[in-house]
Design a protein around this nucleic acid. Structure first.
Lengths: 414, 414
DNA sequence: GTGCCATTGTTCGGAACCCGGACAAACCTA
DNA sequence: TAGGTTTGTCCGGGTTCCGAACAATGGCAC
């Protein structure tokens, strides 16, 4: 048992408080009774916790919602106070940089998306991101005191230590703790995450992964990555780099990959590989987006390329299904928009290669959040990880509650 | 939130009680103070819980352990009452059937291991297992009232529904809920598990997987399977069939595998495949054990076969490391005994093919429990899953505690 | 409109629980 | 033998959850 205080009454209260917040995160606007039903706690307990949260300014009354009231006393609606915290998300891509600021209810307050030149260097990237964060925060008119922190998504392995691993997309970034740099530059706390993991977080919270016990988010873009979510929690593995499906060996004698392996999936089916292959055979300079739009328009070579990519990806996904046996696979990333042009051969491959029970258990669907999945995930990363910061605020919160409550049954030791 | 009663005081007590039991499971014989330190609970809480457990007969005093006492009052040692429950484990292999009975402290009371003809049918297997369970229970002189249940391990995918999937080892078993049959025959509750998962459970509890955040048990025998343990809990996936690494596609154009795929790892490197290959080239009928002993004796062809198997397995394990990023991989199963003859090429393969950070994070070690891993895991399955049965007994337990305690501060409503 | 009903939110008492401190017990060392 | 140390128990204090009772509030039947 490594938890520091689990088992105590305090931790029980804390987990119940977190549960109420989670309920409001999911329900949006709700009455205390609804929260009680959702959490399984009694109305009295919920009432007590909500009183604390109100005093702490985490929750606010929401006068009325215009909902048709049923028989009985009309509920007093509450919701998370959007103004209680601002989370910033930063998403680095191969050629784009996106930044968004959102409140606790996940409403996006301001957002920026800029194209940046390929193969930009890390320093430039960080600088530009910092500038953009400042712009976005200014646009959102957020109280700077309320900014909880910044979530930063990178397309490559992110080790638990905070060091970025070698990546096919951002080769120059390896080996340095760039999150710290951004944190220093902005004076804000920064959480770092792999882009596929962040996409998984987002799709699992608001998108196609909701309500599953185990699902995998597959990001098909310039590179190929995956994020594994188990029981609503991201599974990151020992070092934080779980989900690197792009380096599944498809052919032991294949092309040497940047990762040091041979015949990795990425060398066959990543956006970069497809574009390179078609550019070569066509003699013109294509990128993934062009391939996708031409395929949609009916270009046979581009369709064929997607079909083969789907099959190749399907082999790796079949392996994944055998190993992880997920309930659902959510496909996102720019190539995910190819729809069934890519998904059908992928499904076919999985059906042929995964063991029958695993193939039957899994459902392969496109993502619901589109190209903003990673960005939303970066925001979610802050909201989830900064959530426990409320427990840091808890003493103050309880004092506030005490001051508010006349019959101060709750008191704080020191 | 689906838990029925989590968040309440009762559930807190229950989880603390379970924690104390878990501490005793791990520590064996211990003082209350040691348990308090291990669990992080206060001495008073532990004392109170232990009083309950003593009254319920789950825990007993262990007069003295002959341990050299340090300065201070000598501890009053306690331990789980071995007589409080008996768990039976059944392990089906390709050519063997093993049954063991163990007490709560995991001491094996009786054990049987019989060779059975290859390709035995399911009905025969179940019958023979039932007979053997009865023999073992008789040998162990166990009070039949105290038998908690039977854990049953099968070498093939076991779906959550209880239906056995198609397996290369037990082809005739697919599609039927054999656990129910055994349960009816014995009049005992039966838990069903995949053999690799059970091995993982065992190695994670007592063997080479202890203390890891995420580890994988790799069973290399007639077939190849894996069990994934995350935070001490078995990860089984949506349908309960996670870990089927044996059907990783190594070559899309390879031999057709029993599972319906092509070029699966098992067709290259499973014990059955190696034996078949060598038998063919030698013109004599070899089985895995013979290959292993000859390799150990220096036979070059057998050594070569193991080397190549190791490399092939390494490819699939590298994929697994990329996806799951485990901290450790524990290799068991009969082929695991080949030691570095197999593990060195396996490690080499992983080093070459897994992404560097994942390869650095992982440690590949042989299992510590040998051929009994699966059997012990079957026992552990019962002890873990029947553990919560104590909560069913909890009311009685509390009444007992009340009767025992003079100043009965604890009371029970109904 | 009036009385009944359903639902909600609050409050209060009861009970369960954990913790810290006090204390006796028991052993070791000097 | 005295002092120190660790252990197990007990008690008081404080926290927490729950159930029941109650007031508030609006819908609905008549």
């Amino acid at each position: 048992m490594r938890e520091e205080d689990s088992g105590s009454l305090r931790s029980l209260r804390e987990s119940n408080r977190e549960r109420v917040v989670q309920a409001l995160r999911v329900l949006g606007v709700a009455s205390r009774a609804e929260v009680a039903r959702w959490t399984g706690l009694s109305r009295s307990t919920v009432s007590s916790i909500v009183t604390e949260l109100l005093a702490a300014g985490i929750v606010v009354d929401r006068a009325d919602d215009g909902r048709s009231s049923s028989a009985g006393r009309p509920p007093a609606l509450i919701a998370l106070d959007p103004a209680a915290g601002i989370a910033v998300g930063v998403d680095f891509g191969k050629r784009h940089l996106a930044v968004a600021a959102a409140d606790l209810s996940h409403r996006i307050l301001a957002e920026e998306w800029v194209e940046i030149p390929e193969d930009y260097q890390a320093e430039e990237g960080i600088d530009q991101a910092a500038d953009l964060v400042e712009t976005v925060l200014a646009d959102s008119e957020a109280d700077s005191e309320r900014v909880l922190g910044v979530g930063m998504g990178l397309p490559g392995p992110v080790h638990r230590s905070g060091v970025v691993g070698s990546s096919a997309i951002l080769p120059g970034w390896a080996g340095m703790p760039w999150a710290e740099r951004l944190a220093e530059r902005l004076g804000l706390r920064v959480w770092l995450g792999n882009d596929a993991n962040l996409g998984a977080l987002a799709e699992g919270t608001w998108g196609a992964g909701r309500g599953t016990g185990a699902f995998v988010y597959l990001k098909l873009a310039t590179g190929i990555g995956a994020g594994i979510v188990i029981d609503g929690k991201l599974f990151e593995g020992a070092g934080g780099t779980a989900g690197e499906i792009g380096h599944t060996t498809l052919d032991e004698t294949g092309e040497i990959c940047r990762c040091g392996g041979r015949g990795c999936l990425e060398t066959y089916a990543a956006g970069a590989a497809i574009a390179r292959m078609l550019s070569h055979s066509r003699g013109e300079d294509l990128d993934v987006d062009m391939v996708l739009s031409r395929a949609a328009a009916g270009d046979p070579a581009c369709r064929r390329a997607l079909l083969e990519a789907g099959r190749h990806i399907g082999v790796a996904v079949a392996n994944l299904c055998n190993l992880v046996n997920p309930e659902r696979i959510v496909v996102g990333g720019s190539m995910g928009y190819a729809g069934d042009l890519l998904l059908d051969p992928l499904r076919e491959s999985v059906g042929l290669r995964a063991i029958p029970s695993a193939a039957e258990d899994v459902e392969i669907v496109p993502g619901e959040l589109g190209e903003r999945a990673e960005l939303l995930g970066a925001v979610a990363l802050v909201l989830h990880d900064a959530g426990p910061a409320w427990s840091g605020r808890a003493p103050a919160m309880q004092q506030a509650a005490t001051a508010e409550t006349k019959t101060s049954r709750a008191r704080v030791r020191s």
